[in-house]
Amino acid sequence: MSNTSSTYLAFKISDHLFGVNVDRVMEISEYRAPKPIPESPSYVLGVVEFREHVVPQIDTAQKFNMPPIDITAMTCMVVLELQNLDLAKKFRVAILVDSVSDVFEATEDNTVPFTDDFHPQYLTASYKTNHGMVMILDADKVFSIKDVIALDKLVRS
């Protein structure tokens, strides 16, 4: 039995609940319209300013192959600081989510790992809450090396 626990931010995209480790979360804020960037991937809506930096704004639903997020009064931007280990590069993104629901603690004992043949590599486990099943993300694996290079190029241009 493992006593190691981690704290996660739970958020909703469409009818799905996801959780990301709070260590990756820099800020949660209300939606801000991005400045569009020509020739960017469909899931990149543009860029926004964050603490004197320019970060790409990601339609998380499109990134996860779901219909685009409808912007409502509940739509939030969650700014994440991620790391691509293959490139030894840290980068920031502002992901759009339909809403933020809560913060929860989970241990290996109360999560159920996904089997290797069933899920994208960025989904690690599921956790049952009062609001439903939360799919826990390994946020560092959401963006491939190709994605990170493209995002870096967009921000620099």
Rank of each mutant, 00 (worst) to 15 (best):
I71H: 00
L87G: 03
E39Q: 11
S40P: 13
E105T: 15
V93H: 07
V112N: 14
I28W: 00
E81H: 06
M77V: 06
I71V: 06
K63G: 02
T72Q: 13
R51H: 06
S99E: 12
K35L: 09
M26C: 09
R92E: 09
P68M: 11
V93L: 10
H53T: 15
F50Q: 11
P34N: 03
R32L: 06
Y31M: 00
E52W: 08
I28F: 00
I28R: 01
Y31I: 00
F91Q: 07
N84Q: 07
E27H: 10
L82V: 06
A88I: 08
E27I: 13
P38K: 03
E27W: 13
D23P: 00
L45D: 06
V93F: 09
S42Q: 04
F114I: 15
I71W: 00
A61T: 13
V25A: 01
E39I: 08
Q62T: 08
P113Y: 01
M26S: 09
C76F: 00
L45G: 04
F64A: 05
M66N: 08
V54L: 11
L85I: 05
K35S: 12
S42A: 03
I28V: 06
L17Q: 04
E30H: 15
V93C: 11
E49Q: 05
H53S: 07
V112R: 08
I58W: 05
T107C: 07
D15A: 02
V112F: 15
A94H: 03
L17D: 02
D98M: 10
D117T: 15
P41C: 07
F50L: 09
M26R: 07
V54K: 09
F64V: 00
A88F: 12
S99I: 05
T111P: 12
A94K: 03
T107F: 04
E81T: 02
L45H: 12
H16Y: 11
I37S: 10
N21I: 14
M74K: 12
P38N: 04
I95Y: 09
V93E: 10
A73G: 04
V20K: 10
R51M: 05
V55H: 08
E39P: 05
R92Y: 15
P68Q: 14
M74C: 08
E49I: 08
F18H: 06
V54S: 08
L17H: 05
T75D: 05
L82S: 04
G46T: 15
M77S: 03
E108W: 02
D59W: 13
D70T: 14
V100L: 09
D116M: 07
G19F: 15
D98S: 11
V25D: 02
V78S: 00
N84E: 10
R24P: 00
P68S: 07
M74N: 12
V44D: 07
P68T: 12
A33T: 10
A73R: 03
A94M: 03
E39G: 08
F91C: 01
V78D: 00
F114M: 12
E52S: 12
R32V: 04
L82I: 12
P41W: 00
E105N: 14
L45Q: 07
N110T: 14
L82N: 02
T115P: 14
G46S: 05
S29Y: 08
M77R: 04
